[in-house]
């Protein structure tokens, strides 16, 4: 009970911290909307040439674009999650203090990141999505059940997204300069999550591969549920499996890192 309250407080803190930067939030909304506009026109051109590409019709492709813009900062696909701060704490050695806290390091940061993600979804995600839905023909389900199923997939996507970024952040324990790894991390994430192109459009073996990688849990999985393109249950299983694997790997890396810190004496 006490632990539950602690992590809720941490999550609330994460939410509030990002909520204080109003100008940054407004700037982000603007930028996401502009990028959404650019992508929407290119997708429309693409689907004009090839209707039903990847099994989507044009309205579904447009919806996919605006979902991507809503998720970009929510799932920190292009960076900007709590991992930046965690890496900085590892670099400066402040993380040693975190390790002596009566809380679990991974759960602590997960809670903070979920708080952040929730704020980004509401503060930065909703406006571009609503803008897109009002200005372009989109395909949205009418029944509440599908929206609920979609939201569950979003939460799972948050867990997977954190799982990936936590591993990236922990690499800072072993590498002196983490910029290279972070850059590679968000690069892969950007492409493999389907931000540039829906994964079901990617042909051949490359398509087969990216569709089973963890990143496809982030945008493609929730989008397919919302667009009625996939059944919730198998999707949840896929996302859940990746969440368990990644968070478990994070746990192993964390204990290895902790041992290292203890050996070095902080």
């Amino acid at each position: 009970m006490g632990a539950g309250r602690l992590y809720t407080a941490v999550a609330a803190g994460g939410f509030r911290r990002y909520a204080t930067y109003r100008a940054a939030t407004a700037a982000g909304v603007f930028t996401n909307t502009v990028f959404g506009l650019i992508l929407v026109y290119t997708y429309q051109a693409l689907w004009n040439e090839r209707p039903h590409l990847g099994g989507y019709d044009q309205a579904q492709a447009v919806t996919y674009v605006w979902l991507g813009q809503a998720f970009l900062s929510t799932l920190a696909i292009g960076g900007g999650g709590v991992e930046d701060e965690l890496m900085e704490r590892i670099r400066t050695g402040d993380v040693a203090i975190d390790l002596y806290r009566p809380a679990d390091l991974q759960l602590w940061w997960l809670a903070a990141d979920l708080g952040r993600a929730l704020f980004q979804l509401l503060g930065r995600g909703v406006v571009p999505f609503v803008f897109g839905a009002l200005c372009f023909p989109v395909s949205l389900p009418a029944d509440a059940g599908r929206w609920a199923a979609f939201l569950v997939a979003v939460v799972l996507a948050m867990l997977v997204g954190f799982g990936i970024r936590y591993l990236v952040a922990l690499s800072a324990f072993w590498l002196l300069d983490g910029t290279g790894v972070t850059q590679m991390g968000w690069l892969l994430g950007y492409f493999c999550s389907g931000m540039l192109l829906p994964l079901n459009v990617i042909p051949g073996a490359l398509g087969e591969i990216v569709r089973v990688l963890p990143w496809s849990s982030l945008l493609q999985a929730p989008a397919d549920i919302l667009l009625g393109h996939a059944d919730p249950l198998p999707t949840y299983l896929f996302q859940g499996a990746w969440a368990v694997v990644l968070l478990g790997a994070g746990r192993l890396a964390q204990s290895a890192a902790t041992r290292r810190v203890v050996v070095q004496g902080g």
Binding site: A45, L46, E49, Q183, M184, L187, F191, L196, L197, P203
Partner: peptide
Amino acid sequence: TTFGNFAATFLDFVAIMLMFSRVDAL
């Protein structure tokens, strides 16, 4: 990071090439 910079922009172009694997013109 130089390679990363190269690769980041290269993926942009990969996306365009993938589009053209499905269509002949945009």
